[in-house]
Design a protein around this nucleic acid. Sequence first.
DNA 1: TCAAAAGTGTTAAGTTTACACCCATGA
DNA 2: TCATGGGTGTAAACTTAACACTTTTGA
Lengths: 225, 225
Amino acid sequence: MTSFYKKKDRFYVAVDCIIFGFYQGELNLLLLKRTFEPAKGEWSLMGGFLEKEESIDQAAKRVLYELTGLDNVYMDQVGIFGEINRDPGERVLSAAFYALMNIDDYDSELAKIHNAHWVKITELPPLIFDHPEMVNKALDILQRKAATEPIGFKLLPNLFTLTQLQALYEAIYGETLDKRNFRKRVAEMDFIEKTDEIDKSGSRRGAFLYKFNGKAYRKDPKFKL
Amino acid sequence: MTSFYKKKDRFYVAVDCIIFGFYQGELNLLLLKRTFEPAKGEWSLMGGFLEKEESIDQAAKRVLYELTGLDNVYMDQVGIFGEINRDPGERVLSAAFYALMNIDDYDSELAKIHNAHWVKITELPPLIFDHPEMVNKALDILQRKAATEPIGFKLLPNLFTLTQLQALYEAIYGETLDKRNFRKRVAEMDFIEKTDEIDKSGSRRGAFLYKFNGKAYRKDPKFKL
DNA sequence: TCAAAAGTGTTAAGTTTACACCCATGA
DNA sequence: TCATGGGTGTAAACTTAACACTTTTGA
């Protein structure tokens, strides 16, 4: 270390993850009912401390991996939360990240170990510290970003019906959408491709399954839903 | 300190400020030609270290105040930058903030002390570390946010002509706008109020000065430019 | 046979874009 | 008197929003 930095203060830095899933027509968050201090017994986001040998992004991925067993999950920054007393135990800064995952992929064994549960965002319990702020900011970012970038697909299986896709966007925006207008817009985006497979789980008649083609999207990246 | 935090690593945390001003029809940044280590002689954003007794937002305001002598400047978060070697001297995390100021308000004496200079964003010199990324991200946020929230006014004097306002938005978006369409949209926003004062500095004929009425905006907060 | 979800087009309303000339003034 | 920036309206193109019925199937 050069002498330049010697007198400066150093801080604990955490990452907290706002983990979104889509389930039963609603956005859900994967939350911990804490079995550990501080705030044992209360609800919180999944978090962890930044370590010396990792970047902040890596820390976020690691924390998510610890809880879900997944890597390659879409994550993006929400912001840094740095009020002095945000953690009443000790001063800790927190970098918040949101993650979008397909709820089918999650490992319920790992979740059990951490006492993690999917909770509808319309029915969130009280959360500790400034975690409610983090969630609100993440939701706001998700709503804006989902409208103009094809990130919603991260919340669905690879193959999905248009009814599912519409229900997802209705959940994200918190409003109902017109079926014909929605499908018209989907039809204009060639990278949302109809397959010849049919899903019979949602109706007797069955619905065609679609998939998102990222390569095709990148060729003509115009998205609006 | 409770024992819980004892084993965790602690980190130096800085704030860096992307300070926007509007001058001669262009967006400018207030940059330092560093007279101090590290990276003496190179260009950088204004920054400073987070201190124990201040929140991150407060640190950003303090750093801006040190350079400009101004408080009450609009600032918002850009993000946290946490790559391990982003500062080659020692590991330092940085929370980046952008600030929007009226360039007339700045204190050129203070600027001199810090060896700070307004530089057109179309003519930026190479910047140290990951400062270019910070600037790019700040610009992106500014462009998105300026379109739907009335923050552009922070870059102008309290009284401004419509020609100035249009030039500002052209600078933000990096494209020219149609004068009649622009003024039509302004006319629809009642909180952009025509005064009876006239500015003669920009033309022989003179142009009416307008002002932004924040209270009126909050009553009917619909903004689009 | 009927309940439940899938699928399909048209029209009106609203928004956005393109475009050109006269005005007022000081030098 | 003329060069310079200030100020003004309309029509076409495009986008968005509203709206209802038929199809398929398994129980």
